[in-house]
Design a protein around this nucleic acid. Structure first.
Lengths: 147, 147
DNA sequence: TAGACTATTTATAAATATTATAAAATAATA
DNA sequence: TATTATTTTATAATATTTATAAATAGTCTA
């Protein structure tokens, strides 16, 4: 699935849900898809400074909220100060390096069983879950060995 | 396991790790254990205002950090603005109501298998994971039906 | 026990992320 | 084209958390 296709689909979703496709929105989506990372709002802002010299940070926040509302983007809140934003593709989880902060995707079938048990025990009507794993990435493990 | 026993154990941990047991620390721990909730730093601060009229917010933050470092407390970062702090007892997870924000504990064996797979696929050395489930609690489900 | 040293608390200021507001600009619609 | 609604910008406001320095309390040793 190419970046271009993902972008087209995303723009389609916006059209369907009646959200205007402004140049800023186009650029933010494009960046989220192509960057292959999980940028903060500020990182997005800085990355697009060249193209949009007078874009406001508020615009980035506003549109990330809009994208979240139509389900194109997920907000990730880790311990650190600022949220990170992830373009939603398929069911994948994240593993996060506690040394350098790198976030790597990995795929796993999904934890339906846990959801079912929790629903049964607590009486909740479950909508979704969140899971991530923490550790030290191979690069940082090497670092450690050298010192 | 009574609150009192948990508190004693916690104080013991502090002693072992050479962390001084000040009245403020005692009170914060006591509150975390007895409250059975997942308070924010500010909630803790407000709850102890009576006992310690001139305690600083910084003290709450400082000590929560200290407790985290010795493993007595976990910091939970959800989407909302402020972190919540949870006294670590045993391996349990949280299910969170999207309507009223209530957080309920539930026990589950632990997701070692996911950790192993992630470690294998990504080359990370895994230390721990985080998982929580979102849904609507039974109270809020009732609310909905009435309106 | 006195004195020296260290850890902790307090009070305050600072940094930072995010949201709110109002005016200007842009796009959509009739 | 005139009107209306949406979006962006610029700015200010809010709130959480951290940093700093002085004051206090606790610990240790001579």
């Amino acid at each position: 699935m190419s970046d271009n296709f993902q972008l087209k689909e995303a723009l389609d979703t916006l059209k369907k849900t009646g959200v205007r496709i402004t140049p800023q929105r186009h650029a933010i989506l494009e960046y989220l898809i192509s960057s292959m990372s999980h940028p903060t709002a500020d990182e997005i802002y800085k990355a697009l400074e060249g193209k949009f010299p007078n874009m406001s940070v508020a615009t980035v926040y506003n549109n990330l909220r809009v994208f979240k509302e139509v389900g194109l983007v997920k907000e990730l809140t880790y311990g650190d100060s600022s949220s990170r934003f992830d373009f939603v593709t398929s069911d994948h989880y994240h593993i996060i390096c506690e040394e350098c902060g790198k976030i790597v995707d990995f795929h796993y079938p999904g934890l339906d069983e846990v959801e079912d048990l929790a629903a049964h025990v607590t009486g909740f009507k479950v909508s979704h879950h969140r899971m991530e794993i923490y550790g030290v990435c191979s690069d940082c493990q090497k670092e450690y060995r050298q010192h």
